[in-house]
Design a protein around this nucleic acid. Structure first.
Length: 659
RNA sequence: GCCGACGUAGCUCAAUCGGCAGAGCACCCGCCUUGUAAGCGGGCGGUUACGAGUUCGAUUCUCGUCGUCGGCUCCA
């Protein structure tokens, strides 16, 4: 894992703590780091935000600490320098272009331009070509420290640079809008014909940027200083490496990620779809995808029931009053769908399950003996997402959370947290995910609930993480205003991070809904409340599973586990008999009865990533055996079908990755 | 929501300058009866996303709507 990925973790925490209400797993980005490399870029989006409170400043500091290493690297200089070379090429080809900022990011760099001409792929080719010429020129990068007045003269025609200079003059902010501790010096870097306001560092000369180790990737819109109130600029993304081999490797990895893209596999394997008629961000689960979901849900539900949870169900809509009490209508309204009028009353589609579980809890007077209560549900929620952010299964408008709420006494908190974490790891590991990283977010400046409670809860979280030997990062002050939390991220087969589980304390809702239980002392006490989701959203988790396995699901999860392939028509009857046999043993089997050649049937089954193919011809029929072709290409002949069944059942029972 | 690109058969994609919309796969019907990744032939399949406009004529040009993709912003 590239250490520079770490800074982005900050943005996966609640960025808007001041309005945070309850967990929102399953809707964060955090996946697709590969495709959206820049999302994880140091010095790009997040640092652009001017820190407005202690919390975000801390995040920024966290980021910068980790950035240091990358910033000191040669690769960082190469990318930074490549950005300058690109800006030179752009300004040469489009003299009217106003250049803004161009930092290195994960895997490469970008530069933003204000330019009326819309850059095309052909333009990118021309720019890239010119860049190759420039780097060959072995031009030196020369740094000069100058006064603000001199700088303003040099960049008299560059309004964005002037704005930056003014910022530097005030001493308050760097080029990304982050506050600086001391007043910075103003410096420029020159190479060949190009001069940029820049603090560096850069490589010695342009030849250190290998002409065959960089590539321009795309052009996209980006707001000046990342603020949507500002003008939209044109951003050119490029990737640059120390040597050609690294570039090749990177491009290969991109291709690999493309092949695993859950949207593509979802179509190819007929798992799910999104219909324009139904609406964007609303998922249709096809039989094969739904089969996987059922298997995952069944497994998890049983685990919950054995793990001391009580299963509950709640409706999809609720009266406005409920959401007023919960605070959602105050803080979260823009993400909720418009109310529907039912007999003169406003009802809302639910964006959260918690108020319903709270109502169940409140239905009785609770004794301290009743606690803890753990209510679990696969609750489908609806949240408005702006059209531009929707993405396959990972960012949708309707999704089902594997949600649970734990109501407990203060003295039970620690055990409950530990238990929830343990449980979470167990379920995720059962799904074939093995690499985890935890994030512990503590009390922010503004928060509700008394500090002693926070302290107790946070320590409980910390001890739980440490007890499970998880690598973790502390996000000091990064908790939601209503409570501290643990987030669990998993690393998939391509080393990409996905945020899945969250375990969050909530000191807010128990207060708002007036939750209480009667203690040993006969007095009413307020219970602790913990929100937790393991897989997050079923939709999103399915997307992660698809990409993690590349569509080749383990046997227990495969929608079709076995395809029986009769070689000729005369083997049909035997094939059906074998299939019936397997079905009776609980396997999911299909017989390929099409009038096709065996090779075609194998190819199709192989493309559908079916774990086992049973090829049946005269030989097998006469011996009452099967010939097994495994998805990995290996084969074993002359196997009694009972033996094959035993093998498959063993893999299923163990939820094994092996075939 | 914003910037840009895109939207042609179920899927993947063609279609010169504005001039009868095409291929492969899939599907259906035949033939072949197959030994570990595509056998052969034929057929069906289209309001070119939707709606306006320009034009003798629009897949092609213009505008609007919807959607998809890459980013930006957002993600309680």
């Amino acid at each position: 894992m590239n250490p520079i990925l770490a800074p982005c973790s900050g943005e996966n925490f609640c960025l808007r703590q001041e309005v945070a209400m309850t967990p929102h797993t399953g809707q964060r980005h955090g996946g697709r780091l590969l495709q959206r490399a820049d999302a994880a870029s140091p010095g790009s989006q997040k640092p652009i935000k001017a820190a407005t409170n202690l919390q975000s400043r801390k995040e920024a500091r966290m980021s910068q600490q980790v950035q240091e290493k990358y910033e000191e690297s040669h690769l960082y200089k190469i990318r930074h320098s490549a950005a300058h070379v690109m800006a030179q090429a752009v300004v040469e080809l489009f003299p009217e272009a106003k250049y803004t900022i161009g930092p290195p990011v994960e895997n490469g760099f970008y530069y933003d331009f204000d330019l009326s001409h819309h850059l095309t792929p052909e333009d990118l080719e021309a720019i890239e070509k010119r860049m190759r010429q420039i780097v060959q020129g072995k031009h030196e990068f020369k740094k000069t420290v100058i006064s603000a007045e001199e700088a303003k003269k040099i960049f008299a025609n560059q309004p964005y640079k002037l704005e930056l200079i003014e910022g530097l003059e005030k001493g308050g902010f760097d080029e990304y809008g982050n506050p600086l501790d001391e007043k910075p010096e103003i410096s420029i870097y020159q190479h060949d014909t190009f001069t940029d306001l820049c603090r560096g560092p850069h490589v010695e000369n342009t030849k250190e940027i290998k002409q065959d180790a960089f590539k321009l990737m795309s052009v996209a819109g980006a707001y000046w200083r990342g603020d949507e109130k500002n003008k939209m600029l044109q951003r050119i993304y490029g990737t640059a490496w120390e040597k050609a081999e690294d570039l090749k490797q990177y491009l290969w990895k991109l291709e690999e990620a493309k092949k695993r893209d859950h949207r593509r596999l979802g179509k190819e394997l007929d798992l799910f779809s999104v219909s324009e008629d139904v609406g964007p961000g609303l998922i249709l689960w096809h039989p094969k995808g739904a089969m996987i979901r059922v298997l995952v849900e069944d497994f998890s539900r049983n685990a919950h029931l054995q793990g001391g949870y009580e299963w509950v169900f709640s409706p999809h809509i609720g009266r406005a009053h409920l959401w007023q009490t919960s605070g959602h209508l105050d803080f979260y309204k823009e993400s909720m769908y418009s109310p529907m009028d039912i007999e003169g009353e406003d009802y809302y589609a639910k964006p959260m399950n918690c108020p319903f579980h709270i109502q169940i809890f409140k239905h009785h007077t609770r004794s301290y003996r009743d606690l803890p209560r753990r209510y679990a549900e696969y609750g489908t929620v609806y949240r408005y997402e702006r059209s531009g952010v929707l993405h396959g299964l990972t960012r949708v408008r309707g999704f089902t959370q594997d949600d649970a709420h734990i109501f407990c006494r203060p003295d039970q908190v620690e055990a409950e947290i530990s238990r929830a974490l343990e449980f979470s790891l167990y379920v995720l590991r059962s799904m074939g995910l093995t690499d985890f990283k935890a994030y512990l977010s503590t009390k922010p400046e503004k928060s509700v609930g008394d500090p002693a409670k926070w302290e107790k809860a946070t320590e409980a979280l910390r001890r739980a993480i440490e007890a499970h030997n998880l690598p973790y990062e502390l996000d000091e002050g990064g908790g939601a205003f209503y409570g501290p939390k643990i987030d669990l991220k998993v690393m998939d087969a391509l080393d990409r991070e996905w945020q899945l589980s969250t375990i969050q304390f909530d000191f807010n809702l128990p207060e708002r809904f007036g939750l209480e239980y009667i203690g040993e002392d006969g007095q009413a006490h307020q219970p602790y409340m913990v929100h937790r989701a393991l897989l997050g959203s079923m939709e999103r988790f399915f997307g992660v599973l698809i990409e993690h396995f590349g569509g080749a699901f383990p046997v227990w999860m495969a929608p079709v586990q076995v395809v029986v392939i009769p070689i000729a028509d005369r083997h049909l009857e035997y094939a059906r008999a074998v299939a019936d046999n397997l079905r009776a043993a609980g396997l999911r089997v299909e017989v390929d009865e099409r009038p096709e050649r065996m090779n075609a049937k194998i190819r199709d089954a192989q493309n559908q990533k079916v774990p086992y193919m049973l090829v049946l011809g005269d030989h097998e029929m006469n011996a009452g055996q099967v010939s097994v072709r495994v998805r990995d290409g290996s084969q074993q002949n002359n196997i009694p079908s009972g033996e094959f069944i035993a093998r498959a059942k063993d893999r299923i029972a163990r939820r094994a990755a092996e075939l």
